[in-house]
Write a protein that binds this DNA or RNA. Structure first.
Lengths: 212, 212, 212, 212
DNA sequence: TATGAATGAGTTTTCATTCAT
DNA sequence: TATGAATGAAAACTCATTCAT
């Protein structure tokens, strides 16, 4: 046990969480600055690690960025997708589940920043954009569209292009996410996600217009 | 008028359109690479101008970026906003006008790339995010919300938060825009903006569900 | 005309010799330190240029190294080879011409340092070693061997492997070159190249042994 | 004596041969890459040892390099030199002995790589160049020259500078060595050392020219 | 007004060396 | 003795900006 006056030890021994810490720090910095403007110096500092240490875990800055974007997917998304695919109840209930899930995810995971990064850096990292499209976005929209198709078969959902319906369902949530990332920090009035979800569901149900 | 045999003067060619050409070139490069990864060399080359010449028109790279983000869309937006504010017809018609306007703008102006840039670089250029919020987004959503309020007063629109309605109306168009910028280039199935607009209007009118 | 008190101008405008100056500086530093230990900083300083300027002319440190090794060949070697190939006199005279040429070249060109570099870095730059082999060494030895063959045909030269004869002829000069580069700087007694050439020719003529 | 079931102790395995193994590994890597480009990581891996372990035996990379250059050849050289100094037979026989010794050494010891390293790194390690000059090269050439002097005294060797004779004797072998290290790996036709030695002896005996 | 070679500060990357275990 | 993750100083490379022309 080190005496209280001991200086900080120069080295911090590897812990199993080291890579996780680095990725978390990197996510924060990349999300804040974007890929090119992020400095490894800052990431290292934030992770409490030397710059060189980053290279023990990731070969280049690009590799680290890829790791950040890729790892952010796995945990929740997978679970979410599974739940949606498995759901077999009536469509209105499906919508409710979906809305609640998305709201929870946007609140508790760094999906917002990641989405922002994909949008901002997609052209420079097309394979990441593709990865996200293939692994996250397309399956998610696919699950939605499939549910729509099932709903239409059951006479619960009006005729119309299921994929477009999916986009309509998802739209306001994306708007809210981007708002939170981009305009809220510069004084944009905050969006009440719960209220938005509620009203969105109502509109999807009945429309926003009063029949003449 | 220069005699036909005059040699092309080395400098001061076409100086009037210079700034426009530069901004156009810069828009293309910034949209492709993002601010930090864009190289003035590339912008200059694309504008058919020397690197030094850029500095005759814009003090720094940041200035140029600001000019791009400010100028590129301003005129169209202004016109669009004016039309929306002036419109006094029934709400359903307002929606139709709005949808058509937005579709036209997304097709004919570089709003897509600009939006992408605002999202990607907003954190590094908060004053630009603020500018866009204050000058473009908020007024636009405000116009929408105001129309909703008028519609509610007339008994055309259901009760509900007008601002959230505005987000709902705008949502699918933003999704489509981001899709076009980010996922279409990596193999995402293209989105038919017209069809989306049509179906979106229908849904806003009647909902997507069939009353039980 | 600048006044005598003017500060040094910050920029030195390009001159046609800029690349030559850089290569000369690089040769000096590479020859001194070897490729890996040479610092671009030092090369730039020696060339009177900023570090960045090097990159205007050569894409990487390796490229610069290649340029150094390649350019050192062209001028004299080519002429020398031409002369040897063209020579059609009797073999003893050929030897004399060759010896004098080689002595002159070793005295007036940076072949010594270059040879040292090829030896030291050949494994890391195999294409350069190959280039030198193909363009310089092999042709030179080939010219020698060809002369030997002609000499043998005329009854001037004893039977024996012409290529090995070529190596024997060249050997002492290489020893002297390496000596100059490696051991003379640390106190090795200098080698009198003229005397060596003379005695070498004598030995090639009569041998060094007195017939019993 | 450890029982057969004892687990291999984690440390202190084979410690006696460690330094030898390390030097051997270092020789291989240094010879391949040169001093500066060689990585301790690679040396450690090749020696089957951790990077830290290198520092238990050698204080720095330079120390290790010195050890390599000093140890690798010392024993053979010493033996060779002793034999030459002791030899008292007639000069032609001396030459034969010398040639055979050198051929054997070049075949069985890493003199080739070491020589390459001395040439390549001599400027960066002048004390090593000096060491080799003082301990290996100069004595060797000295022994040769001394034999020449004795031969001249006995009327076996023509008059002439004994030191230059020494260089002439050694020359082709050095050429062959460098060839093997530098040009053979990139496609240079291999040199038959035995044949070279034979022809070289013949030339030293009678010259390569046929008396007119 | 226009050029583009040149600058130099800033960033990524490497790797000998250290040290907690 | 032995390990190998971690450090940090040094080096290559980039590029916005300047300035002689």
């Amino acid at each position: 046990m080190r005496a209280m006056t001991d200086p900080e030890p120069k080295f911090r021994r590897r812990s199993a969480e080291r890579p996780t810490e680095i990725v978390a720090a990197a996510l924060a910095v990349f999300a804040d600055k974007g890929f090119a403007a992020a400095r490894l110096d800052d990431i290292a500092k934030r992770a409490g690690v030397s710059k060189g240490a980053l290279y023990l875990y990731y070969e280049t800055k690009e590799e680290l960025f890829r790791a950040v974007v890729r790892q952010a997917v796995a945990p929740n998304i997978e679970r979410m997708r599974g739940a949606l695919d498995a759901f077999r109840g009536p469509f209105p209930q499906f919508l409710a589940v979906f809305a609640q899930m998305i709201a929870a995810n946007l609140g508790q995971t760094p999906i917002g920043p990641i989405v922002k990064m994909i949008i901002g850096e997609g052209r420079n990292f097309p394979e990441l954009a593709r990865y996200w499209h293939d692994e996250v976005i397309a399956p998610m929209l696919g699950a939605l569209a499939a549910a729509v198709v099932r709903g239409q078969a059951r006479g619960e959902v009006r005729s119309g292009d299921p994929r477009l319906y999916a986009l309509q369902v998802v739209g306001p949530f994306l708007v809210a996410t981007i708002w939170r990332e981009t305009f809220a920090p510069v004084g944009g009035a905050p969006i009440d996600m719960e209220a938005l979800a509620r009203q969105h569901l109502a509109t999807l149900t009945d429309g926003m217009l009063i029949a003449a």
